[in-house]
């Protein structure tokens, strides 16, 4: 084994040729780099699936909100919104008022993770057409909801 000192290699920056993505404006950057967690997603209101339709409608109206999340033990089961009231309740009120909300809710709702990009929530609204997008954490537990109003506020911040 030689005791000769080895010549020091010149440090080469592995990111020397890295060309970071350039954005046209700060909204484009925010949509790409900000996560759903940075879009307002709380507070949110939940109900149990066995809640009656009448009570669910009262809660929507009493809180002056457009959407309730139907959950059990933190697991998302569905969404009950004023669009469900319009489509399935308003003209059938006497027949459905005492039924569980799980019978008229929108089940299998499309959701996003808090770690998804902000653009993912926008995509659910624009492409899939759902106005209210539940937010889950990495353990698949419900932690919030993104509404069009909240996305509008997000856009307003960067536009």
């Amino acid at each position: 084994m030689s005791d000769k000192p080895q010549p020091e290699e010149e440090f080469q920056d592995p990111l020397a040729n890295y060309d970071p993505k350039k954005y046209a404006d700060r909204l484009e950057q925010a949509l790409s780099e900000e996560t759903v967690a940075t879009v307002e997603h709380v507070p949110y209101e939940v109900i149990a699936p066995e809640t009656t339709v009448a009570d669910a409608v009262k809660k929507l109206a009493g809180l002056h909100i457009a959407c309730l999340l139907v959950e059990k033990d933190g697991d998302l089961l569905g969404v009950f919104s004023d669009r469900d009231v319009l489509k399935k309740v308003a003209l059938e009120y006497d027949q459905v008022a005492s039924k569980p909300v799980s019978e008229v809710m929108t089940d299998d709702p499309i959701y996003v993770y808090e770690t998804d990009s902000a653009a993912a929530a926008l995509a659910v609204m624009v492409v899939a057409g759902y106005r209210h997008v539940p937010v889950l954490n990495v353990r698949n537990k419900l932690i919030g909801i993104v509404s069009p109003q909240r996305v509008t506020s997000f856009l307003q911040k960067y536009a």
């Binding site: 790409s32 499309i110 996003v112 995509a123 659910v124 492409v127 106005r131 509008t152 856009l155």
Partner: peptide
């Protein structure tokens, strides 16, 4: 709200229109 979001999505298809739709565990 929807019209405005569609406008933003059309403006930034590379950010919005390429997203996976719907969470899967």
């Amino acid at each position: 709200q929807k019209g405005l979001m569609e406008y933003v999505a059309e403006h930034f298809p590379g950010q919005v229109m390429v997203q996976r739709i719907g969470g899967t565990s």
